[in-house]
């Protein structure tokens, strides 16, 4: 059977966005994302513009999964942080439980600052996500009453 769905309520979403906005400011980053380890984007903050955030989320998750696989081959549980430094733009990824905190930054910031600030919020984000993951798929779910016609209408 597939995993239980993760439900992100409106209030929780705005709480996460607020934490990301603060982090973005404190780390002088361009964009800050929170991504699920399976590659689903949860929330983002910053100069998103034309950035393809969906693809970035999927590739970040693939990247973490691949390096996690390498870690296990050499006897490590995982590599908790990954950094990719480019000529102008850089990416820092930290693994927080089943979340990935992805920070895109340029020369207005530095890897040291980004690392420090991400570490500072990781506990808070982990706690918030624990609450989200513990949430019930309750009766008010709009999908409990989903009909075959609803599903068919997607393909018509």
């Amino acid at each position: 059977m597939a995993d239980t769905p993760i439900l992100l309520r409106e209030q929780q979403y705005h709480q996460i966005k607020a934490v990301l906005a603060r982090l973005r400011m404190d780390s002088s980053a361009k964009v800050v994302f929170l991504v699920d380890k399976d590659g689903q984007e949860i929330a983002s903050q910053g100069e998103v513009g034309n950035l393809d955030t969906t693809s970035l989320a999927s590739l970040a998750a693939g990247n973490v999964a691949a390096t996690g696989g390498m870690a296990q081959l050499i006897g490590e549980k995982e590599f908790p942080t990954l950094s990719h430094e480019g000529e102008k733009e850089s990416i820092h990824i930290s693994v927080i439980g089943r979340l990935l905190l992805v920070i895109v930054f340029d020369d207005r910031s530095s890897l040291g600052l980004v690392k420090l600030r991400s570490k500072q919020v990781s506990h808070q984000l982990a706690t918030m996500f624990e609450e989200i993951a513990a949430g019930d798929f309750d009766d008010d779910s709009p999908f409990a009453g989903i009909t075959d016609e609803d599903i068919d209408s997607l393909f018509s």
Binding site: D3, P5, I6, E10, D36, G39, Q40
Partner: peptide, 15 residues
């Protein structure tokens, strides 16, 4: 894992 975002009113599934 299906991810349902009530704020952006999106369901995301992986195939």
């Amino acid at each position: 894992m299906t991810f349902i975002n009530y704020a952006s009113r999106e369901i995301n599934c992986k195939i």
